[in-house]
Nucleic acid binder design. Sequence first.
DNA 1: TGGCGTCTTTAACTTTTGTTGGAACCGCCA
DNA 2: TGGCGGTTCCAACAAAAGTTAAAGACGCCA
Lengths: 243, 243
Amino acid sequence: MPSDAIRAALIKRLRISSAIAEEDIREIEALPISVRQYPAETAVVRDGERATECCLIVDGFCVRSKTIASGKRQILSIHIPGEIPDLMSLFLHVMDHDLSTLTPSTLGFISHETLQKLHRRSPGIAEMFWRDTLIDSAMFREWIVNVGQRPAPARLAHVMIELRERLRIIGRVDGGNFDMPLTQEQIGEALGITAVHANRVIRQLRQDGIVELNRGRVNVLDERKFQELADFDNRYLHQSPTL
Amino acid sequence: MPSDAIRAALIKRLRISSAIAEEDIREIEALPISVRQYPAETAVVRDGERATECCLIVDGFCVRSKTIASGKRQILSIHIPGEIPDLMSLFLHVMDHDLSTLTPSTLGFISHETLQKLHRRSPGIAEMFWRDTLIDSAMFREWIVNVGQRPAPARLAHVMIELRERLRIIGRVDGGNFDMPLTQEQIGEALGITAVHANRVIRQLRQDGIVELNRGRVNVLDERKFQELADFDNRYLHQSPTL
DNA sequence: TGGCGTCTTTAACTTTTGTTGGAACCGCCA
DNA sequence: TGGCGGTTCCAACAAAAGTTAAAGACGCCA
């Protein structure tokens, strides 16, 4: 992938939630990024590690997760191309969770040093990145609500719609279909249920003619029922820069 | 309360997680803050509202929460004196959740305009506040894990220990005792369980000689068992500025 | 192409949690 | 001081979710 295309994905996404000055776009376009390939199911940064660079997803899907003493794992968020899942490591140097790939991924790394300098040069970019971490935080809040208050089928529907909303922005939704490359085990880890129960829920939604999930691909069967079940309000994604 | 004491609480807390320059302390001490009293159980800012100021808790306990269509409420975090629970509203102007008091509270309000100017004058303070919102975010991640993966008794113990760790910093822990002024209904809302089940869990922990909870006061009976149950690792609070 | 490993699917059973309804307790204040 | 409203507490039953175990599907690669 050409170097320009890498930055384009980032800029496109940032534009959704913040207004960017032309000069700041040029700054971002000049950012030194080192690109590396990662296989599926591989740790990028681990809980407890000290990060010295941030990771821009160029291609592929990643997740952030935490594992507790009992060995259970909770997935905290799902990440798609154009996102910087570990931007927080810039100021919270020791990781408090894992970042790992779901699918084979192309990742671009930007050193903390470079980013710090950029912030000093351009307060506008600093604000934009700050805002980005705040939206990240808003998504965690909604994730808490999802896991804490919604019945399992609604949890799944909600995670699916959130993912779809975000994929749509980067042009990755094809009609009623989009990628969600998680195994049922991982879906369970995201929703706070077991894999067996995740399977039950998926079956139920298929039987009720709401959504289908086949080999990492979501196919919406009844958009009306799907939305109603998910109880989704996109306000928490803060996609409008004016608000 | 004298105006100095208000700022002192904030500065004391910020010092825990960030190094502050002397000149920045003077900036904070000069901050115009308008103080107002709030009764217990009162909304400070509501989901959907546009905030124009941030709220510093001078005295009292507050919570952030979200209510879903079905009417169920999820408590996202508990806040104590010295914290600014809605700092995020500086860049995410439309609230995506509620902030309300638990107990009668003294709150200090700082206008967004004032804070924006302060950021421009002092990048150090901007970084410190940014870091503060990132720690907030880290706490949400741990809250997701708590609600998603731990059995109900461990959830309660974990929330209790997190609160105790934070209260200790501001000198509000007295031996094995500290305040946690939530009703059982609210505890349920924090843990993602019903009030009835919250009651069962509290009873269980008392019977097992682990902790007691009486009229908003926590009394630890067996510190060893308490810690073991909670599975608490304070790393996510990022309390060391050097890390 | 056959076999191996991972993922999916399902059933039977157990445990946890939710629901309903009601009694006891407690602080507040008329 | 007596009653009222909000908590706390509890029991019986229902529903949701976890556990265990095993069979089937599927993709990969030797």
